[in-house]
Structure formats: structure tokens, C-alpha cells
Design a protein around this nucleic acid. Structure first.
Length: 792
DNA sequence: AGCACGCCGACT
DNA sequence: GTCGGCGTGCTC
């Protein structure tokens, strides 16, 4: 037997399948998808079994060294998917496999000394572990002196140990020993021991912890074990991060007519096992989640599985609670807050079939389900579904591939669909499902736009307009709650000299340094460069240099100064990095420990508190002015989402949007909650600008230390692309990137725009291959982003 | 990516 | 004469 293996070496040159012989003693155990350790050149590394085949090989093949799993980590679907991703994402197979699997699975390599012969003096033997290994990194000088003669004589050799990062957690348990239960019971004297054996006989396996909880002391258990009636074993201990929480069973809610219609359409596709894609366009508060829950429930009833994706920041305890309440232990939750071990446990629950529903962020799209009956992507427009770094996959693409593989339907849900998806639904590629009425029947909040230019003209230079100030004071007095949203993207704090206008820049990148109040220093967000806060302007020696721009901290201070009786909870990256802090802050707000919740992007989603009657958007424009073709779309989506936080209950909600561009169509349509109006206008702009969904985009970024070289080389690549691509496509550039230099690497970009380009992948693969050696040798780097989410 | 092999300069 | 610099090339 032979095996085709992907080796764990992240290099283009070895991005192919290697053939190995399977040793006779491993043939029975060997399965596709397993991880194995193989000799590779002079060393030993981990690899994935992609294919097994029989027959003679005329080549002298090396043999697989050992297996790493008993149950394969990958199934044949994921293997096929990885091949597809390798091709369509211009990515290395191993890099693709790496993002598919949970971190705990990935191998760790240690250089070790290995004891060849066990028969050595005791003082040497104690240095080694049970497997006769000793990590070289853990050797003291003394150890090495001791070992040196043995290394020279060959009794100890250098080797590489491939180990798993995260061991499966085990627990001690007991089970029946091989023996007749009745005769066993007869041989026991005490009732306690008898009942213990009966209990174990009934349950097959009981952990010691369970027994202890049932008042069987270790002494009793050990006594029976000693008699040979029970035996101790290790069982896998599945960590459940939510195990201490009690979930109340959640009942099906009656669907409103529009919900029902959407549900019926999906249900029909589920039953027919048809690979339909639905775009569920439902305004905020229209009860999309209830539709998801009921369709999932149907899938489970059919004995199939369901995968649901939500944006990372929407994966709040509230959301999880709702799923756990409806489906109980059948739910696996996958998000970034889990430890590697917890994540792996959830993964294994899915693989074994113990969990049949998953709720998770982007990477959970690879969850190893069998018999998928439905895939749901909630908030399908969210940019976070696209992985920002290599391999740049979009969870939506993966979901569509998997749905086709399983022949099951997909629901793309959103209140503000991406233009790409909406256009496809309009064309009939996807099935459009619309919900226009709110499930709770409460009125849509009223939206008021404040023109900050007028405020400024009227002499109000604070960041709170007259209207907002009045509204905030009113809510504080009534004891109602307020959410204030500060759009921080592209609006970090920096230092500015008031005399000469100097702004401290990163010496390695073409970007100004960001001021961090917590550490009181200046940092570069791109390369990590750090320097102390400057007290005197390095340019003109003036001491009128100070922090500019508003951060949430600054706004918090201003709120306390501006409003009596304000009690603020601030949510941003600084206050929510600790595990569980997100949840804690929200529950504090929910309990009324504060009346103002101030935050960035992360508060735009999911919070659903009845007492919020006012939502203020402090600066609606910052996102609008970003040099990106999606900036209007992003602004519209964000404003709609933020507005959705108000009036989720009986009390009427108000939204106040402060902006310097009150007439911008993104803001106007957001104000009127008019998606179609926005869509039509934005589509015009996309059509004229030759942007998605009219054209597909590929963003190529080249970087190198030497500006001249990178410019010359990218010009050449421009030529190559023109030759390879069809006349209907556009190749723009090379032009300097928006941030022209990062970490002393000059950056140029080329943008490809095309409607249909059958040779695209071939051309890109050619670039990736042909230039690879050059890029390695001359430290050039090329990044290829197909369907980029951002052009910056 | 690692690691070995190999072919040149500065040292005992 | 040899130790070590890192360019080159290979890994089933």
C-alpha cells in the first residue's frame, strides 16, 4: 500500500503530493485524512494522507514513520475542498489545510535527544522521559556534559519529535472487567459495592467524578477494582465552556405571514434536498433568527446536520443562549474566545456526530459535518467573513461550495445585503425572500440627521450637537438608556503640532503614528514600531504639540463633563480584550448599572435591550471618506445596524446621526431605512466605476525594499497580465498603494477588473509560480487577493 | 521551509 | 592545510 501525502512545509516548492510506502503493520489502521509523520529529506515532519493506493512502485519509496491520529482529522469532503481552494485561491495546499483544522491539531516540532538503548546508568536514564526523549532546548549545560560521551558513542541520537499541541483531556473512569455480572455480585459482601457494580453494569462507563458525586468514595471503588470486578480506564473528557450555565428550553414562536412564506420556501428546498441559495432580506427586528431556528429544527428532524455562520462580534452570549435553549446539547459553538482545547472539543463533537448544529464565526465554515442539510450565513454582507490574510478565503464561497457538495440549500440573511448578493437575487441566481414587517410589531425608530456644519457655524464646537445634547439629557432624566456610537475606523488619535502642523510619522511606514493613552506612547499599527510621546515638536521645537482626534476614552471624559447624571460603560478594543469582559460589560449595562453605552463597531450588533430609547451616531462620515469603493455601502450598513439598536420594545426609539455630509445618499437612505433606494443609486456608481457586482476584481500587491525595483517589476507584471488576459478585461496600475510603504517595504498595486475571464486562474498561477523564485531570492513579495473586500 | 553539500577566504 | 561564510539545490 502507498499513500499520497501533503507535507507540513509551507513552501511553494514542496506544494505537491509526495508518495510514501505504508508499512505492513500500519496498513490496517491507515485511512485517508489521517496525519502521519514521514521522513522528509534529512528530517521528520508531519503530513496529511490525501490518497491511498495499491500497486507496485518502481521507485524506492520511503516509508511512513508513524500515525498521529486514530480517527482521521479530515474527511474526503474537506480533502476535496482543500484541492479546490488551492486552485481557486492560488494558495498552498498545506496553508489551506492549516486554516481548515483547529489549532490544537497542528503539529509542534521539537529537537530531542533520543535514548537508543534503555540499558544505561540510572543518572543518565532519569534525564529522559518514558519515551526515552529529552528536549534539546531543555538541556542544561550539565546535562549536555553528561550526555556528550553517549552522543559520540551513538547511544543517544538527535531526533525530531512531532507532537500534538493539545492533548485530549482524559478522565479516570471505571467499567466492568471481563466477568459475569451475576457471579460477580455474589462474591461481594456489602450493599454499597453491589449497587456500585450494578450501576456500572447499567451505565457501561462511570467516571470517578460522577461516582464521587453519587457518594461512592474512592475507597469503595478501589476495593471493587482490587477484587477484579471493575477496571479503571481513561475516557475522553469533553470540556464544555457553557456547562455551568442553565439554558431554558425555548419554544417555537408563531411565524408572521412573511416569515412563514420565507420558511416555507426554505423548507421545501430542505425536503427536496435541493442546492438552492436563498437571500433572506429582512429588516432589523423582522425575526430572521426565528426562521433560522425553525428551518434548522426541520433539518435535525430529518436526521441531518446544519451549519450556521454569524460574524464574530455578533456571537454574543444572547445568540448562543438562544440556540442552546432550542437545541440543547446538539449545538457546538465555535468562536475566537475559546481556548485551543475547547475549540478542538467542539470540533470533535461535530465530527463524531454528537453535535449536529454549529454556530460559529468564519472558520467554522469548515466544521466537519456529515449529511449537511442546511447552511445559514447571517449578516451575509459582513466583511469579516473574508479572511484578511493568506489564504484569503471568503466563508460565503466555501459555504456555497459545501452546499453544492451536499446538495443542500443555503440561506444568506441580512437586513442590508451585499450588493453582490442582492444583484444575484435580482437576476434570479438566488431566490429572494423578503420580510418587511417587524416581528415584534413595534414601530421602526425615527431617525434624525444633524448637520454638523450648521452646528459649527452656530458656534457649537463640541462633538455633541444641540439636538443630541437635549435628547441625552432627556433620557438620563427619564431613566432610559442611551447607546453612543463612535466610528473609529480611520479616525485614530495622533499627535499634531499646532504651530507647524507636524504629525509624527512611522520611520518604517508611510503612515502617522497612533497615540495610545493607556501606555502613553506612539505606535505604528502596521509594523508595531513604538516611540515615547513627544513633548516638543521635533520639527519646530514648539511645545504646542498634543494629541488630536477623538478616541472613545476622550469621548467618555467629555460625556462626564457635558452631562450631569451620566454613567458610562465604554466598549472598545481596550476594554474587551480580556476573556468574558464583553459579556460582563453588556450585562452591567443590561442591569442598569449605567445609562450610556459608548463604543465602536462592536456595539452595532446584537444588543437587544428594551430600555434603549436613544441611539446617537457621533461621527457618521469617517467611514464615508475612506478611499474605497465600498465606503458608501459600509456606511449604509453600519448606520442601519446601529439604528436597529433603538426601540426594540414598547418604548419608542430615536436615532440621531451627526454628520458633515447630511445629503450623502448613503446617509439619506439609511435615515429612511430605504435599502432599495440605496441599492439602486449605489449600483449606478458601481456600473460607472466598473466595480462589483458589474465587474470582478483582483488586487495584486507587490512589495520590496527598493522602490525602483518594485516599480519596474510591477510594470513587467502588468505587461504579462495584459498578454494573458482577454481584451475585455482591465489591468490598472501599477500605482502606489494607499499606504505606500509598510515596514520599509515599498508597495505597489495592480488591479484587474473583468466580467468573465476563463484564463484568470491560469494567469495568476503562472505569476505565482514563475515569480516565486525571484520573489524568494530577491525578497520580493506578491500578494494576490481575489474578490478583495477592501482595496487598501 | 530546513538542511546538506560545496566552493572560496582567513586563520592555526 | 582546516574552519566557517552562505549560495544552491533537494526533499517521495
Amino acid at each position: 500500500m502507498y499513500a499520497k501525502i501533503v507535507v507540513d512545509v509551507n513552501a511553494k516548492r514542496v506544494d505537491k503530493l509526495f508518495d510514501y510506502a505504508v508499512p505492513a503493520e500500519l496498513e490496517k489502521l491507515m485511512a485517508v485524512g489521517m496525519r502521519v509523520v514521514v521522513p522528509f529529506g534529512p528530517r521528520k515532519i508531519q503530513g496529511y494522507v490525501i490518497e491511498l493506493f495499491e500497486g507496485d512502485s518502481d521507485r524506492q519509496l520511503k516509508a511512513i514513520h508513524c500515525i498521529q491520529d486514530v480517527t482521521p482529522e479530515l474527511n474526503s469532503e474537506l480533502i476535496e475542498l482543500s484541492a479546490w481552494m488551492q486552485k481557486t485561491h492560488i494558495a498552498k495546499r498545506i496553508a489551506v489545510l492549516d486554516v481548515m483544522l483547529p489549532n490544537a491539531v497542528k503539529g509542534k516540532y521539537h529537537k530531542v535527544y533520543r535514548l537508543v538503548d534503555e540499558d544505561v546508568p540510572e543518572n543518565i536514564k532519569v534525564l529522559f522521559n518514558k519515551q526515552g526523549m529529552k528536549k534539546i532546548g531543555e538541556c542544561s549545560l550539565n546535562d549536555i556534559t553528561l550526555l556528550r560521551p553517549l552522543i559520540e558513542s551513538g547511544e543517544v541520537i538527535e531526533d525530531i519529535d512531532v507532537s500534538q499541541q493539545q492533548r485530549i483531556k482524559t478522565q479516570k473512569a471505571v467499567t466492568l472487567a471481563d466477568m459475569d455480572v451475576d457471579s460477580a455480585l455474589n462474591s461481594l459482601r456489602t450493599d454499597k459495592q453491589k449497587s456500585l457494580v450494578e450501576l456500572v453494569a447499567d451505565n457501561k462507563i462511570m467516571t470517578l467524578k460522577e461516582l464521587k458525586d453519587m457518594d461512592y468514595s474512592p475507597a469503595v471503588v478501589n476495593g471493587v477494582v482490587k477484587k477484579g470486578l471493575l477496571k479503571k480506564i481513561d475516557v475522553e473528557d469533553v470540556r464544555d465552556p457553557y456547562k455551568d450555565r442553565v439554558f431554558f428550553a425555548d419554544e417555537k414562536k408563531t411565524l408572521l405571514p412573511e416569515q412563514q412564506e420565507a420558511y416555507n420556501a426554505v423548507k421545501e428546498a430542505i425536503d427536496a434536498e435541493r442546492n438552492d441559495v436563498f437571500l433572506l432580506h429582512g429588516i432589523t427586528g423582522s425575526g430572521k433568527t426565528e426562521v433560522y431556528l425553525q428551518t434548522i429544527s426541520d433539518v435535525l428532524d430529518k436526521g441531518m446536520t446544519a451549519l450556521m455562520l454569524v460574524p464574530e462580534i455578533a456571537l454574543t452570549p444572547q445568540m448562543v443562549e438562544r440556540f442552546k435553549a432550542r437545541f440543547g446539547d446538539e449545538v457546538a459553538v465555535l468562536h475566537s474566545g475559546l481556548s485551543a482545547g475547547e475549540r478542538y472539543d467542539e470540533w470533535r463533537k461535530i465530527r463524531s456526530g454528537e453535535a449536529r448544529v454549529s454556530v460559529g464565526a468564519r472558520s467554522s465554515v469548515f466544521a466537519p459535518f456529515k449529511h449537511l442539510g442546511l447552511i445559514i450565513i447571517d449578516e451575509e454582507h459582513e466583511a469579516s467573513y473574508k479572511q484578511a490574510d493568506y489564504p484569503r478565503y471568503h466563508a460565503r464561497d466555501i459555504a456555497l461550495w459545501r452546499a453544492e457538495y451536499h446538495q443542500c440549500p443555503v440561506i444568506l440573511g441580512s437586513a442590508t445585503p451585499s450588493l453582490e448578493s442582492y444583484a444575484r437575487a435580482e437576476k434570479g441566481v438566488y431566490t429572494m425572500l423578503t420580510i418587511n414587517e417587524r416581528a415584534n410589531q413595534f414601530p421602526v425608530p425615527s431617525v434624525h440627521v444633524v448637520n454638523m456644519r450648521e452646528e459649527l457655524a452656530a458656534g457649537n464646537r463640541s462633538m455633541f450637537s444641540e439636538t443630541l445634547t437635549t435628547a441625552i439629557n432627556d433620557r438620563i432624566q427619564k431613566g432610559e438608556q442611551i447607546v453612543l456610537f463612535l466610528n473609529r475606523r480611520g479616525h485614530a488619535q495622533f499627535m499634531l503640532c499646532r504651530d507647524c502642523g507636524y504629525v509624527p510619522q512611522c520611520p518604517n511606514c508611510d503612515i502617522s503614528l497612533t497615540y495610545h493613552k493607556v501606555t502613553d506612547d506612539l505606535k505604528c499599527h502596521y509594523c508595531g514600531y513604538k516611540e515615547p510621546k513627544v513633548l516638543k515638536c521635533p520639527s519646530c521645537d514648539s511645545d504646542h504639540i498634543r494629541e488630536m482626534g477623538v478616541g472613545t476614552q476622550k469621548v467618555e471624559e467629555l460625556i462626564y463633563k457635558h452631562f450631569d447624571g451620566a454613567k458610562v460603560i465604554r466598549m472598545d478594543n481596550d476594554t474587551t480584550t480580556r476573556k468574558g469582559s464583553h459579556e460582563r460589560l453588556l450585562s452591567q449595562f443590561k442591569n442598569g448599572e449605567a445609562n450610556i453605552l459608548l463604543g465602536t463597531q462592536m456595539i452595532a450588533k446584537g444588543l437587544d435591550f428594551p430600555n434603549i430609547t436613544l441611539v446617537g451616531v457621533l461621527n457618521a462620515d469617517t467611514m464615508l471618506n475612506l478611499p474605497d469603493f465600498r465606503s458608501a455601502e459600509r456606511t449604509y450598513q453600519l448606520l442601519t445596524q446601529v439604528a436597529g439598536r433603538a426601540g426594540r420594545a414598547e418604548k419608542e426609539g430615536h436615532v440621531i446621526i451627526q454628520t458633515y455630509n447630511p445629503d450623502h445618499y448613503a446617509i439619506e437612505h439609511a435615515k429612511n431605512n430605504d435599502f432599495l433606494g440605496f441599492y439602486n443609486q449605489e449600483m449606478q456608481f458601481r456600473k460607472v466605476g466598473k466595480y462589483p457586482p458589474y465587474f470582478y476584481l483582483v488586487n495584486l500587491v507587490f512589495s520590496h525594499r527598493d522602490m525602483k525595483e518594485v516599480l519596474l517589476e510591477s510594470r513587467h507584471i502588468h505587461e504579462v497580465l495584459l498578454q494573458h488576459l482577454s481584451p475585455g478585461s482591465f489591468v490598472l496600475g501599477p500605482a502606489p498603494c494607499a499606504i505606500g510603504r509598510i515596514n520599509n517595504q515599498y508597495r505597489f498595486q495592480i488591479i484587474i477588473k473583468f466580467k468573465s475571464e476563463p484564463d484568470l486562474l491560469t494567469a495568476l498561477m503562472y505569476l505565482d509560480d514563475y515569480y516565486y523564485d525571484k520573489f524568494v531570492k530577491d525578497k520580493f513579495s506578491l500578494s494576490i487577493d481575489i474578490n478583495p473586500q477592501s482595496m487598501m
